[in-house]
Nucleic acid binder design. Structure first.
Lengths: 215, 215
DNA sequence: ACCTGAACACCGTTCAAGT
DNA sequence: ACCTGAACACCGTTCAAGT
């Protein structure tokens, strides 16, 4: 239990713990700066100041500004995708209505947990580093949707790759518009219901009975 | 036909003509730099060089870099919206199938006329100045869609504001994914057909007979 | 070993000096 | 009148010098 390690790292745990702590402080600082000044006002120096470290230290944790923002975007999108994946699991084997509502609601709810944060991340997502992260997350979402659709007892939905692509991508536009356009709460709810309707209608229009053959 | 105007602008037309020409040269240079180096590699100096003017001159035409990019984005989106508006006019009074196909095709075709350009503009659209332009263009699109839907002889589609919002926004995600994810041509066509299907299915699911009452 | 922040290169923007 | 480009302020990134 002594602290007599000389030239190596003091102890294994503390070093990692401090490292994780600093990492988290930098993330949190980035979020704050992003919310206060927007993506265009974000500066590595401002982030470092807010996190209580020097710029040099920030660059030990992230190779450059884009990597920092990409990591933040990735963390956010991984959370959102995880929510959608969970909804997919929960709705396995249920009706198309429930499938559609679960997925739509999970996505909207995840994005609206911190609307301003979701909103400001769109500019990060549109940059080079962001686009590949978005693509990867979209891929994961489509996989989860394929699983979900395949679990339906009575129906086949045609080419699941295509159907899940359309399902996944068609909800992002409306939600982005909702987040950036500041529409009324009534309108928000109305649109959520309409989105469910749209996905249900789509699924039913591409579905065929699984029992015998298909139309 | 003489050129004897002393201290004022040489002639009215030539000045405007030269002005318009330079303006266009700057736009064209911006597009080229954007295509070659991406939004993150674009520099006002590079644009000015490519346009054959000095930075100072560029700043006489545009107050700052963001205004330049916003103007370019606006011009692009105005063209795209014009295409969609025209499709809406052409499909007035037709079946829901034709309405959906016209609008979806017009949007996809307009965006795919210069795919790389459309693609690189997403990062411009996500920035502060871009978001309000996108919102305004979305507004115009929704108006055109309301007109289109109202022209249907046999059906009412409920709250047109909401339905047109969902229609307009739900196609942007798939098309953006198509443009950024480099999917195969087969897949592209398949998705175009599916998008039509989705919009048709949605319109039919929210429609009711106009003749007597509604369900 | 790890942190610091002055220093460097580069970019957006301006404006005194040209024509 | 209009254009030019050196100059300025600021930002991303590095690295010699500290502890």
């Amino acid at each position: 239990m002594k602290t007599k390690i000389s030239a190596t790292r003091p102890m294994k745990m503390p070093v990692q713990a401090r490292s994780i702590l600093t990492n988290e402080a930098i993330f949190e600082a980035t979020i704050q700066v992003l919310l206060n000044l927007g993506a265009s006002g974000l500066t590595t120096t401002k982030v470092a100041d807010r996190a209580g470290v020097s710029v040099g230290t920030l660059y030990q944790y992230f190779p450059n500004k884009q990597a920092l923002l990409s990591a933040l975007l990735k963390r956010h999108l991984e959370y959102v995708v995880a929510c959608v994946e969970q909804a997919c699991v929960s709705a396995r084997g249920r009706s198309t209505d429930i499938m559609a509502a679960s997925v739509v609601d999970a996505f909207i709810d995840a994005k609206f947990e911190r609307p301003e944060f979701s909103r400001v991340l769109y500019s990060v997502a549109a940059e080079l580093g962001g686009q590949s992260i978005v693509a990867a997350m979209m891929q994961r979402t489509q996989l989860a949707l394929c699983d979900l659709l395949a679990s339906h007892h009575d129906s086949r939905f045609g080419d699941l790759k295509v159907v899940s692509f359309v399902m996944a991508t068609s909800v992002v536009g409306p939600v982005q518009a909702l987040l950036t356009a500041e529409v009324s709460l009534n309108m928000q709810d109305a649109i959520r219901l309409q989105l469910r309707k749209m996905i249900v209608a789509y699924l039913q229009s591409v579905s065929s009975q699984a029992a015998m053959g298909q139309a």
